[in-house]
Design a protein around this nucleic acid. Sequence first.
DNA 1: CCCATAAAGTTTCGACACGATACGTTTCGT
DNA 2: ACGAAACGTATCGTGTCGAAACTTTATGGG
Lengths: 194, 194
Amino acid sequence: MKNQALILLDTVERLGNLLRVGLRQAGVAQGLQPIHLQALLYLNEANRYSNTPQALAEYLGLTKGTVSQSLLLLARRRLIARHADEKDGRVVRLTLTDKGKETLKELGLTNAWRDALQAASPARLSSAAKVLKEALAALQAKNGHRTFGVCVTCRHNLHIGPRSYVCGLTKEKLSSREVSKICREHSPVEENAV
Amino acid sequence: MKNQALILLDTVERLGNLLRVGLRQAGVAQGLQPIHLQALLYLNEANRYSNTPQALAEYLGLTKGTVSQSLLLLARRRLIARHADEKDGRVVRLTLTDKGKETLKELGLTNAWRDALQAASPARLSSAAKVLKEALAALQAKNGHRTFGVCVTCRHNLHIGPRSYVCGLTKEKLSSREVSKICREHSPVEENAV
DNA sequence: CCCATAAAGTTTCGACACGATACGTTTCGT
DNA sequence: ACGAAACGTATCGTGTCGAAACTTTATGGG
């Protein structure tokens, strides 16, 4: 009997491949590579601390030079906009243009997946997601990668009142919309129970 | 509250990315790209109906021309061997050389994953794998992709005696070792229960 | 204040993936 | 025997990717 962990690994790898192929096919109409779509998806979810080339490079696991090239292409196509940061002249802020947001919406990347899991109960999905999140966190910790979670699950996030949040790291107020976005400085809260 | 299916999708995508980055880092020492390692892994598990460039292309979701280039590189490095098929002069049979098998073994690609899931119970792993397999099958069916399963789970496989198998498609006998390998012609048995 | 150091981004280079297309060979159906 | 189909290869253009050199801006001592 084969190890259960290896069976799961195999399935995740094949799903990852299939999703990647799906991204490729989805992007071919616009002349976009999988990495371009992943960048757009990230920037669509990144909060104001995390919308920089460097953060994107860390998220994707690529070097900053490589990412710089892809961003060049996206800017040429007017899918993203680059602005210099006001406080720090070294950093560049990346935002999706309206065209970029529209492109993402048109692609409808999640439809196939939603259909594929239509039959499964929420409880089973939630259970599966939990197992995979553990694996993800363990792999990220082992490789020294950032976790890139949302503020809601971050130990820096302080809930100081009804719909009022403050990031303990930057001491800045966060809107209730912003705390559900992805942050580069995310550090998961400790889980005591297993 | 966000849809459970979308949370799972996000986790699978990020895991897929991480595994891909891991493949890249593992292969950099030998000057191999992720796709090369995936090809080696596939050929290591493919049965005698499925060790061809065309089957590999379908498995990876790439065109045959692209795969042909990667195989050229692998053959140059003496990691695979190519033989003309005896019966059909059009097809090329691909096998791992000893050097190819050794390379795979040295990389130890599954160790990190095994460690990451060390804490999870087999029952939870099995449950998660089941959900993902359903998603995989649904996506493959929708896109007209082959399933590339092992003969044991194939409706063509006939168990005609103790450790004695026959493939109903080719009418050939299969060894008990062979029925646990990946086949291009795999077609899953019908599941009545949902 | 000055200078070393670090950090964020860009640029350039070489190797290679990838799709599209054209092409050659072999097999199969009629 | 002949055309269609299948398998594989070769070529071309675009773009990814890491490595390394470089620019600009910030930071931290003396």
